[in-house]
Design a protein around this nucleic acid. Sequence first.
DNA 1: GTTGATTCTGTGAACGTGCACAGTTCGCGC
DNA 2: GCGCGAACTGTGCACGTTCACAGAATCAAC
Lengths: 340, 340
Amino acid sequence: MTSRTTRPKRATVHDVAVEAGVSRGTVSRYVNGERYVSAAAREAIELAIAKVGYVPNTAARNLVMQRTQAVGFIVHEPHSLFVEDPNIGEILLGANSRLSEADHQMAVLIVDTERDTERVARYLSGGLVDGVIIVSARVDDPITRVVERLQLPAAYVGHPPGAAGSASFVVIDNVGAARSITGRLLETGRRRIGMVAAALDRDSGTDRLAGFREALGDRFDETLVEPVPLYSYSAGRDGMRRLLDRAPDLDGVFAASDAVAAGAIEALKESGRRVPDDVGVVGFDDSAWAQRTTPALSTVRQPAAGLGAEAARLVLSRLRGDDTPAEVRLDCDIVWRGSA
Amino acid sequence: MTSRTTRPKRATVHDVAVEAGVSRGTVSRYVNGERYVSAAAREAIELAIAKVGYVPNTAARNLVMQRTQAVGFIVHEPHSLFVEDPNIGEILLGANSRLSEADHQMAVLIVDTERDTERVARYLSGGLVDGVIIVSARVDDPITRVVERLQLPAAYVGHPPGAAGSASFVVIDNVGAARSITGRLLETGRRRIGMVAAALDRDSGTDRLAGFREALGDRFDETLVEPVPLYSYSAGRDGMRRLLDRAPDLDGVFAASDAVAAGAIEALKESGRRVPDDVGVVGFDDSAWAQRTTPALSTVRQPAAGLGAEAARLVLSRLRGDDTPAEVRLDCDIVWRGSA
DNA sequence: GTTGATTCTGTGAACGTGCACAGTTCGCGC
DNA sequence: GCGCGAACTGTGCACGTTCACAGAATCAAC
């Protein structure tokens, strides 16, 4: 029994029309900035709008226009993203600024619990957004399926899950970034450089390894690559230990992520080696780990704002009717700190 | 000329009705889970919905129902909040989880540029949300004015700006938190404790000073309070220098914020004092500063998720028709690290 | 003064829902 | 058979907007 206390009933285009002594059509034309409104009418309408305090009802407009000028920004796993990952904020702002230029509203939708999933799916299905930007989609995600089924224009930040074959997406150039940070490590004079490679079941994992290999060229040595399953601290530590057993003489390490690098540094220290004097270490991601290690980590930073802006551009382009799925690959920056 | 390529036209309640051989009304009743739908009708409708792929149109429902089951979460100054402040993410999630329980959708709206301001104001005016949660409102903010004018149910995280007299809000208990962290400092055996007080033109500033005073009781010494204008590193450093000139014998400091504390530690070190051996230091906020100082800062942590959840609760209560503005004050946690 | 283009205006129909209300069917007791 | 309430169903209207279309006024050219 929502005994909703008297919320003031809003003025409609009709009220403005009577007040101004013109018709609804004319008011509508004025509001939407069309031609064919006489100076006299314009003046009367402006006065009337101010008097009755008219504000167009967006729900009604959406209904008849069949579009909303709004784009959903869907965030999964919000805890890890919002609390731990410094990138998400910048991605968000990059996307917002691009959408803003195109006069589109961005609505951030958070998918946390099971309930959220259903509700966001309803929200999207309901036609309150013209398109979506999806960050960190999961394989077989219900949201992704809804988006597919509705044929809602979408752009992914990161690789879209398998099913979404026809989707646009923007990713970082893992190969290029790995190549270039390994190159920097070479320039510091390191001769025997190893890699703790992680997550070789994912594109990001194999791409980073590929970039490492490219940078080394002839000097690449298969035995200096130690694969570990996860992008984690403990995996990095254990992998580094094994790598040191095999190649005690190495003087440089490229770790597939900052967490892996932090673990590697731990293993190097426990073996009595100094970083960076004996062994130079570089990581990937510029996550919170990178600042916590001693010395601080040299690493690869994602162009986060750029990712957001590009994703926005892709979804806007789809809204304009361009149906060819696009794939954008962005270059990364390198942040050089004390670890190499 | 948006040559929008054929987006499949969506099935309506009418299509379902025809397919199932019942009337629109019956379908509507089924969809909204009302009574008075026969088993036969239910079955036919379920089949028909699956067949034509019906999804209710939210815009149409919003229009006729005059409410949206959605709440806007408005974020100003997104750069400082999303990129630097670790709290905003948790506030967001706390609010989302509470709204989710009440089956409300949360739409995060980012206000960055001038354009954003207008667009978000339009969005709110358009009636796409039933209420709003506002973080870090600015005095004389256009958004706040729009909210006021529309009499949109609102809850603020932090003190609402002057104009919004009738608004609900949730704040942290600055007095209590300052009292309790000063108390902890006393328990470590410090005898002469000073404070670098900041921003005494704001409630947060005077409240933290008041809590400090309460904790010390009889031992409170006016001359050990050094006021500085801003919550900043340089203000903290300069203030600490002056405080040390006046009271070279002090052995404990409560800084009004982590940035101030970081500056104070710098000043203590340059004067040759050791932290925490000679002087114990505590801060406030548990911001990024707290982790960067050496030693890491003992400080006050905001119950960020709680702030969000309470703000959500307040706005939901207003949506249920409760018109009395509420004011909630939450207790803080203390994070004890090496600096004291 | 007729023609025709241009500018402006008003009207009715849609958009897809929910709801009030009227109507129908059914079971049950007498 | 009748009355009666309960269970169920269908119809028209309203929500506030945009848009197509028809019509009116103005003006220039012949």
